[in-house]
Nucleic acid binder design. Structure first.
Length: 342
DNA sequence: TGAATTTGACCCGC
DNA sequence: GCGGGTCAAATTCA
């Protein structure tokens, strides 16, 4: 049993080291691949041993031990994500790759994490084969080919005065269609990633108001953002600690709503900046920073920024120490709510 | 001038 | 054939 725990801890250590060296490894695909493979093997081996463990008592011990650790780590990671909006966005992108599993290796519930990340009321992540694209449950199931992974969620529409703001998620989208939907009071809008052509990013989303709750949008994400994978893909501006804005601040602004929802993040958890929040969101083409929106449209030219990967997001997220260090060590920390800090 | 949005027409799965 | 999804020309806007 100790051997399994030792394996897991070793894997965690390797992951931590990987995190520290990620900026360097990013230019060494072979080394990066080897590191990932080694980590994968270790966790895979640990997983196999757990599965084949016949000792129920030790399994129970392991379960209890690991569950506690995972809960601590998961909670800490989530807390860390809440305080590091950039990493949230990168992980959102990465989550798409893990959506076939209900949980990631760290024991963090992806759906819950995404809900936390998005601030959504509900998250339903399902393989494309299991989803009904039709807006109404009364509609027969139908599905286009090659849709990729699909996730559906409902998000509250932030309000500025009497104006409800369509949801923004840190990515930049280009609207390519709008359609009246049978049995729906409101039309459905169709968006694709702004960088679809430039980086062959196939991510799409559909946005529709709920009939019974017009202040809430149902957003269906289809496919994954691949634009951030490109070595030349635009990334985000370097974040600052001031990128969080509250909904109150949003409400207080005199900026036109439409400009704001193009640049802000409605999520009260991670605050308001698309640039501050869209770290990996190379798709978040955000020419805009908080308070610098220029109008009802994104008019900035496509700008190539150096690739910002997960490591960058973490390392630049405002923590003086390695973010991976933070993740792995924070499980042992006592977390304090923001309002109790300082 | 270039990029985003609008919108009617067409495509495609059921 | 129906209806959701996508295309692409026209339009709008900075």
């Amino acid at each position: 049993m100790d051997e399994i725990i030792s394996l897991i801890l070793h894997g965690c250590e390797l992951a931590r080291v990987l995190g520290e060296t990620l900026p360097n490894l990013a230019t060494q695909p072979d080394s990066l691949f080897n590191s990932l493979e080694e980590i994968t093997k270790i966790f895979g081996s640990a997983k196999e041993r757990v599965l084949h463990s016949q000792d129920s008592s030790s399994s129970s011990y392991l379960h209890n031990t690991l569950t506690l650790e995972h809960q601590q780590i998961g909670t800490s990671v989530e807390q860390w994500l809440r305080s590091n909006p950039q990493a949230m966005d990168i992980i959102q992108t990465q989550l798409a790759a893990d959506r076939n599993d209900a949980k990631i290796s760290g024991g963090i519930d992806i759906r819950g994490l995404e809900a936390a990340v998005r601030g959504s009321q509900a998250v339903d992540v399902v393989p494309a084969s299991d989803v009904n694209i039709a807006s109404s449950s009364s509609q027969r199931p139908r599905q286009r080919k090659d849709q990729g992974l699909i996730s559906k969620m409902t998000v509250p529409a932030p309000r500025i005065g009497n104006t409800e703001i369509p949801p923004e998620d840190g990515f930049t989208w280009r609207k390519y269609g709008q359609k009246e939907i049978i049995n729906s009071r409101f039309p459905r809008s169709y968006y694709r990633c702004t960088h679809q052509k430039l980086y062959n990013c196939l991510a799409k989303k559909h946005v529709q108001r709920l009939d019974d709750d017009p202040s809430t949008f149902e957003v269906t994400y289809i496919g994954e953002h691949t634009c951030h994978m490109s070595a030349t893909a635009p990334s985000i501006l370097t974040p600052t600690a001031d990128h969080h804005i509250t909904q109150d601040q949003m409400a207080a602004t005199t900026e036109p709503p439409t400009s704001r929802w193009l640049s802000m993040d409605f999520n009260p958890i991670r605050g308001g900046s698309s640039s501050g929040g869209m770290i990996g969101g190379s798709c978040g083409g955000g020419a805009d920073d908080v308070g610098t929106s220029t109008g009802t449209r994104y008019t900035g030219k496509e700008v190539d920024f150096p690739v910002m990967d997960l490591a960058d997001a973490m390392f630049n997220s405002g923590s003086s120490s390695s973010s991976m260090d933070f993740i792995f060590s924070s499980a042992e920390r006592t977390w304090e709510p923001d309002d109790k800090k300082n």
